[in-house]
Design a protein around this nucleic acid. Structure first.
Lengths: 204, 204
DNA sequence: GGCCAACCCGTACACATGTACTAGTTGCCA
DNA sequence: TGGCAACTAGTACATGTGTACGGGTTGGCC
């Protein structure tokens, strides 16, 4: 059994690797930290029996690269392991063919259970357990309209209204309206506070 | 042997716990996720033989709480384990009596070595290994003047110039100068970009 | 068909932000 | 002692930002 574990964070990776070795003692866990090594591994070797995929790591474009990954690995189950757990992102991933979603905030036992279920052919989502700090944030974020969330992501990168307008191919006036609206529903006073909020909550 | 491990992140914590169990097979590792439980543990039980401390977790004020922690635990070695690794923060911690600093970006083997050294009475700092993404960021940040870094931290929280002025008890005009200067030296165009940058680099 | 939410575009105005100056104080170091 | 870096405070000006309007389209739903 061959498992590929993709995450750019060494400690995190080794934490999950230990968990996997405990769950699947016979498996070989290949740890990968960036897109270049992931590509090389998938091209050279045979498709793995399980792919654990972080959403944010060097060289990886969550939206575009996931779909192409899903295509090239037609049969291997893919579980997305991410810091982010806003509803919109997860929905999009599941419709794009992810077999599971596991928040990094979840307890190890919950993760294990999820991994086993997915290997059995199920599709599971695990949200963080216990007292979740980001819960109210998630709630607020998921009450945004898709377009507002879209704009927020750009605000989080520090872009100006004009720049966001260019990227989304709409008028700066419209961007301003989206920003104004999302600030209101999030109960945030300024764009830089929103940027800070979004960056801290993994919306980057 | 009693080890207390403080971090609000379950996976991270279990990753390091596994490492510790491997290093010190006879030790009991107590995992703590927030300040309330940490306080209770330190009041109720005897002082541990080693304290691994994250800098950012619920209820913990890095600057103030670390000094009081250092006072109440006069003999136990304290190793700070943090995502942040800008020079200023580390310097401050070491002068405040930390026995070690380990970046979460470091490889497991390096962490182990650091833990052992500290238990031997040494004082060590471990910076992230390999291709470090945040390295240029750290470089830039540490080239800021103390006051600029101070202001940047406030910007990262989404505060306006006026609010920062109130908190630092200086004129808003002066705040503006600091902001302008730090934007220039960081090569960043706007305050919200700076907020995003700072939040992503753990300066919160 | 009417209704409504979400999206789009624009104007007008108040205020925040960023830069470019001038200028005074402190403290450190050669 | 002179020089320099950092911090402070202010003015003036251009631009960005946030809100309050009005008004348009689309698509879904009763």
């Amino acid at each position: 059994m061959q498992i590929v574990l993709v995450d750019d964070h060494p400690v995190f990776r080794s934490g999950i690797a230990v968990l996997l070795n405990h769950l699947f003692p016979t498996a070989h866990v290949e740890e990968v930290g960036d897109k270049a090594n992931l590509d090389r591994l998938l091209i050279d070797g045979p498709p793995p029996d399980l792919l654990l995929l972080d959403l944010l790591f060097p060289g990886f474009e969550a939206d575009a690269d996931f779909t192409s990954l899903r295509k090239s690995l037609a049969v291997t189950p893919i579980i997305v392991v991410s810091m982010v757990h806003d509803v919109t992102t997860i929905d999009r991933l599941m419709t794009q063919g992810a077999n599971g979603f596991v928040s990094k905030g979840a307890r190890p036992e919950e993760m294990s259970a999820a991994f086993l279920s997915v290997m059995d052919g199920d599709t599971v989502c695990v949200y963080p357990s216990g007292p979740v700090l980001t819960a109210p944030a998630d709630e607020a974020v998921s009450s945004l309209t898709p377009r507002q969330l879209d704009v927020l992501r750009h605000v989080a990168r520090g872009l100006s209204n004009k720049e966001i307008a260019r990227e989304l191919d709409i008028s700066p006036y419209t961007v301003r309206i989206h920003v104004s609206a999302l600030l209101r529903t999030l109960g945030i006073a300024s764009r830089s506070a929103a940027a800070s909020f979004a960056a801290s909550n993994g919306l980057l």
